[in-house]
């Protein structure tokens, strides 16, 4: 575990906590894309299947449980919570996220480390995570009312992936040259998607 990865995990955790706080404290999810939250829940479920089969470390297992439960809690709030669900602007959140799921799945069938169920699910989750933010970015640019908690949420998500890129560079030079090209390429795409958001966010 290097500092970049730890910082990345912490900013990722913080982004989810900021969103949970916003929804819980304001009892509102205006400006938040439910589709992005559903995609993230699928990402975590597909990637953390090994939660019960492979024990890597207490940290790893605890964080997986936290990410799965928090993303499920956010989706539950936006779908079921009587007060919060009313503030979800359905007609604004129009991105056809099914297309993202299908594209990620097809990519995972073609590009994976081994053609096994586990590896295909893992690659699927990596590809899907790279594009999961799109519905949220569309909502932000359409809405123009980037309320600061949602803006901060996206900012921390971008920072998390940027730290992971530093982590991969660090690991490449210190731990030998394992091929992590699936993570590297999709991580770059993901961080690239945030670049234009950061452009708008800082120029706002």
């Amino acid at each position: 575990m290097n500092a970049f990865r730890f910082l990345g995990d912490m900013t990722h955790l913080f982004s989810v906590l900021v969103l949970l706080l916003k929804i819980y404290a304001t009892k509102s999810c205006s400006g938040v894309s439910r589709k992005t939250q559903e995609l993230y829940m699928v990402v975590f479920l597909a990637r953390y299947m090994d939660l019960f089969t492979d024990y890597i470390s207490l940290y790893n297992s605890v964080m997986k449980v936290v990410f799965i439960t928090s993303s499920a809690a956010i989706v539950w709030c936006m779908r079921r919570h009587p007060q919060v669900r009313r503030t979800y602007d359905k007609e604004q959140d129009t991105f056809r996220h099914v297309v993202l799921v299908a594209a990620a799945f097809v990519l995972a069938l073609i590009f994976n480390e081994r053609f096994t169920f586990r590896e295909i699910c893992w690659a699927f989750s990596i590809y899907l995570e790279a594009v999961a933010i799109l519905p949220q970015l569309v909502l932000l640019q359409r809405g123009r009312n980037v309320d600061n908690l949602t803006g901060q949420y996206v900012f921390f998500l971008g920072a998390y992936r940027a730290f992971y890129i530093l982590n991969w560079i660090y690991r490449y030079f210190t731990e030998g040259h394992h091929s992590r090209w699936i993570s590297w390429l999709s991580g770059l795409v993901q961080t690239g998607l945030y670049a234009d958001f950061f452009y708008y966010y800082f120029l706002r």
Binding site: R47, D50, I56, N60, M63, F67, E113, W122, H178
Partner: peptide
């Protein structure tokens, strides 16, 4: 070697 592709990242 299994070590090199253990998915130890979140």
């Amino acid at each position: 070697a299994p070590a090199d592709n253990v998915k130890d990242e979140l």
